[in-house]
Design a protein around this nucleic acid. Structure first.
Length: 513
RNA sequence: GACCCGGUAGCUCAGCUGGCAGAGCAACUGACUUUUAAUCAGUAGGUCGCGGGUUCGAGCCCCGCCCGGGUCACCA
């Protein structure tokens, strides 16, 4: 956005600069230093209504006086009076300026105000003829002059239903993401999504803290990345003259802490995966991981159930989530479905008894792309993703994944081909992933070596050998259950958003120009 | 990365078979002391995403590029 020279400014912005100059000529500072409100917009309305209900209004129907600060979001000039709406963090309230109340000079100066300016007003509350609680302004002060108009739509409240009707507005998705400040400023419902996001994170912390977990911080810049199968972002440390990676997961560091005797730890972290963007993928995303000594994945399923219900109770107030226009009830215990069992049922054959060639053929028949080089585990995973996953709307634990897909998970105690692992799907999306953590250092080294073989075969998402992590396991990690959770995806579910970009304040976009 | 759709005034959009660049809201001037999508009268506002090409003439047709959205792929 170029901003050099008045010639390039739009007409609208030129007018605002002219008003800015006119304000200064009148000795008014257009960018005030501070302001002390005595109430919020919603608080003033509530206080008036309480006084009204108690029969406590002064003569003329006036309630208590307040000083309010907010942004001008509506303006109706009636000649010798003006009605405006001022919006603060709590909502909007109507304010009423009358020439013979605020005084002639002050009233004339109102002409230099615009939509999106920040002002402070002071005066008693009253109810207008048409019934709206309003601040009868006795004095006002400019807090900040806005030089660029916000893209307000016209907003009408349906008198009967109370529904908010938007007549036109700020709809351009690109502009809304790039200028999230403007998106937030004109869309109260967007502000609400991010308030909910904050409440979700607070609830997650409160739950885990109460369970005796310790919140920790582990490195974002890592010399070896691990804990997940994904391509990393690379960066460079100049003084050490070496490549560093932005973390793709916290897993291996958190389990080192379990070795060290911090027996319940969690971290809420930004992780980075160098992958494509989609409705459910942002390269920079928020993950919650926790690890609990002496527990296995069965224990973790129980903990996850309690956590999900806790967050729903605390944040949403009802045990259901919205996906698109579907309402999905969430009640414990969640369904448990063996990955192999689920797939065998759909295929009408025991998957264990199918050869790799048969699995490959089946996948090909279904038109599943990009199969070349896929091993048995990957084929099973793809088939499951195609045939079973889309139907998992109600909360479902998918259990016991093939060993080669889970290099950090413990072998299943009853079936060596599988691991003790679960993924929790809600609304067709994977939100949790957990295992009984592999703590046999010899097995772990072999699994890493198998990953190295995959890497050499061209799989650039295969995991790296982390010798220091093996060393930690050699000291002894107690039996441990661990869980990873996609915070953004959980927030999507709880706010009914269909794109991850709508729950991330500043999602990744290509750079402008 | 592939395909589909889109980019026109500050915002939301229209623009026919290629023939003077349009509307609503916002802005500006004026009227109006209980309005609330205020109303009424008038005015101004454009790099039609960018660069080439075809044509007497391009917002519109052709080629290339940029940006976004969607779908797919990749991706626990």
């Amino acid at each position: 956005m170029s901003d050099q020279g008045r010639e390039e400014l739009s007409q609208v912005m030129r007018h605002r600069r002219e008003k800015l100059a006119a304000l200064r000529e009148r000795g008014i500072e257009p960018f005030a230093y501070n302001f002390e409100p005595t109430a919020t917009a919603a608080g003033a309305i509530t206080a008036f209504e309480a006084g009204e209900a108690d029969g406590n209004l002064a003569e003329g129907g006036y309630g208590p006086s307040f000083r309010l600060g907010g942004r001008i979001v509506g303006w109706r000039d009636m000649g010798r009076s003006v009605f405006a709406h001022v919006e603060d963090v709590s909502g909007r309230v109507q304010v009423y300026f009358k020439k013979n109340v605020v005084g002639e000079e002050s009233f004339e100066t109102l002409a230099l105000l615009d939509l999106s300016d920040w002002i402070g007003v002071e005066g008693p509350t009253f109810r207008t003829r048409s019934g709206e609680v309003t601040v009868h302004v006795e004095s006002w002060t400019l807090l900040t002059k806005s030089l660029r108009p916000l893209p307000f739509g016209k907003v009408e409240t349906d008198a009967e239903t109370g529904e908010r009707i938007v007549h036109s507005g700020f709809e351009d998705q690109e502009a809304r993401y790039r200028q999230r400040y403007a998106d937030l400023a004109v869309h109260p419902e967007v502000r609400e999504v991010f308030r909910t996001r904050s409440r979700v994170i607070t609830a997650l912390r409160r739950f885990l803290d109460a369970e005796g977990f310790l919140e920790v911080e582990t490195p974002v810049l890592q010399p070896i990345y691990g804990g997940a199968s994904a391509r990393p972002f690379l960066t460079r440390h100049n003084a050490l003259d070496r490549t560093m990676y932005l973390r793709i997961a916290d897993e291996l560091y958190l389990k080192r802490l379990i070795v060290g005797g911090l027996d319940r730890v969690y971290e809420i972290s930004k992780d980075f995966r160098n992958e494509g963007l989609s409705r459910v993928h942002n390269p920079e995303f928020t993950m919650l991981e926790w690890y609990q000594a002496f527990s296995d994945y069965e224990d973790q399923m129980e903990l996850v159930e309690r956590l999900v219900l806790y967050v729903l109770d605390e944040v949403v107030g009802e045990r259901r989530v919205r996906v698109g226009d579907r309402e999905i009830p969430v009640e414990a215990p969640f369904r448990r479905l063996g990955l192999i069992d689920g797939l065998s049922e759909v295929l009408g054959r025991d998957v264990h008894e199918m050869t790799q060639e048969e699995l490959y053929k089946k996948a090909e028949e279904l038109g599943i792309p990009d199969l070349k080089g896929a091993g048995r585990g990957k084929l099973i995973d793809k088939l499951f993703g195609e045939l079973v996953e889309p139907g998992l709307m109600h909360p479902t634990f998918v259990l016991d994944h093939p060993k080669e897909l889970s290099p950090l998970a413990k072998p299943h105690r009853r079936d060596a081909r599988l691991t003790e692992r679960f993924e929790l799907y809600i609304g067709g999306a994977e939100i949790f992933n957990a295992f009984s953590e592999l703590n046999d250092p010899i097995d772990q080294r072999e699994r890493f070596e198998a990953q190295t073989a995959l890497r050499e075969a061209g799989d650039d998402e295969a995991q790296q050998i982390d010798d220091d992590y093996i060393r930690a396991l050699e000291y002894g990690m107690p039996p441990t259950g661990g869980v990873g959770m996609g915070v953004d995806r959980l927030v999507m579910m709880l706010t009914g958003q269909t794109s991850i970009r709508d729950v991330i304040l500043f999602p990744i976009l290509r750079t402008e120009e």
